[in-house]
Design a protein around this nucleic acid. Structure first.
Lengths: 134, 134
DNA sequence: TTTACAAATGCAACTTGGTTGCATTTGCAT
DNA sequence: ATGCAAATGCAACCAAGTTGCATTTGTAAA
């Protein structure tokens, strides 16, 4: 994604074009794996304010530019692309060796039967194992 | 579970018989849903030290007396019984209305195909929806 | 039963991840 | 050019959980 496309994307989502947001977008599309706040912060050149970065991550998530993942590590991680919703579920694979979090888009949606009286809105799956690089 | 059984369970796991551990065990077997530190603390009569309670939860998890669940709420929750491992997987259902976390033991084990080169060790699934009580 | 030692506890201080309030700045529509 | 909502930067705060350490306690062996 070039800067032009990033600008369009922001405008389309009704977000103002700021330096951090452009940098964030460019970074997200370059990085396929899910990243924590710390990962993102250290990847960005120059100083970034903690609360501003957190707020932008939240904003991006609200408008569907990124989705957050809870991989049992205790910290939230973010990946480019819309949140897995009904009909758009995807699992996340956490490598127990390198800690990389992969979005497993290609997996077939999970069909899980819940007991009578329970209604499923959303299914989040975290697979732990060893990735192809380890 | 009576106090006698709780004592045996502790001994069997090589853990010393302390007041807090007995109380914890009795509480866990009485409460089917997953509970946070705060839930457990407020359920126990009398004062309990924060670090002692956390340490006992960790110890109980190590020896398989309880298992912890990450339900996206930001706090860990604990439920009685061994952790879902290979062949013992179970999903957790989080009610979006009452926030109760159910262990869905009766669900059939999940079979998820991962890409070539990836090796699955463990699958954790969190289902969000509305429970039968809401 | 006493003793002895590892394990468990209690307390305070700390760490980490994240949030909030507020004054200042900036993007953008008019 | 200008007005204003949105975004930023900063500091202070918060909650969950951890750590270090001195004291206490369970238990096993003498």
């Amino acid at each position: 994604m070039n800067s032009r496309q990033a600008e369009q994307l922001l405008q389309q989502k009704g977000l103002k074009r700021t330096k951090l947001r452009l940098a964030l977008l460019c970074h997200f599309v370059k990085t396929p794996h899910a990243q924590s706040y710390a990962d993102i912060k250290s990847a960005l050149v120059g100083e970034t304010d903690k609360s501003t970065l957190y707020r932008n991550l939240a904003t991006f998530e609200e408008v569907g530019l990124v989705h957050s993942i809870n991989d049992h590590s205790g910290v939230a991680k973010y990946a480019f692309g819309q949140s897995p919703t009904q009909g758009n579920e995807h699992a996340h694979f956490v490598c127990e060796c390198c800690e990389t979090v992969y979005c497993m888009d290609e997996l077939t949606p999970l069909r899980i039967d819940v007991p009578k009286g329970f209604k499923t809105n959303n299914v989040q799956t975290v697979i732990r194992g060893i990735c192809a690089n380890c």
